[in-house]
Design a protein around this nucleic acid. Sequence first.
DNA 1: ATAAAGGCCACCC
DNA 2: GGGTGGCCTTTAT
Length: 165
Amino acid sequence: MRQLPPLSDPSYGFSPTPFGECCIAFSNDGICALTFPETRESALRDLEHRFPETDFHQNDEKAARLVRSIFEKTKMPRLNPIGTEFQLSIWNALQQIPAGKTTTYALIAEAIGRPKAVRAVGTAIGANPIAFLIPCHRVIRTDGSLGGFRWGLECKKAMLEWEKK
DNA sequence: ATAAAGGCCACCC
DNA sequence: GGGTGGCCTTTAT
């Protein structure tokens, strides 16, 4: 899964959020990554792994402005997720879930017309490159339990709680 | 090409 | 609560 056109003016930065420090990566094409890593080193390794050809330059100030607009909900920034067709269709479906609501992995599978692919849907949701903005935290199991979360279940809980009001 | 690994689910105990 | 088998995509051999 490789991006064909190179990112224009690729940048990244770290910034505090209601859910701990995030790492956000963006270019003129939009946000390409938003993560909530344990450490800054792991965040950078992540970026390097996902974009081996791209050399991002650090811009914490711009990152902070972006992050502020995200969590104050002043405006929805442009997203630039990179993935397979299957993944993109799922990440797109996630964005239809209203804030404060939840759905299930099985219902997402239905929504994209692949009702049998539930397991693969879970995997694809786990590969969501833009946490929070692509609201993978709003997807739980059919039996009502929380399911998984790449950045820790506490973080998933906190996001759902935060959106409840 | 093929194996192995997943943020799942239904079904059993 | 826990374990098994089936399902489908992605990534690493």
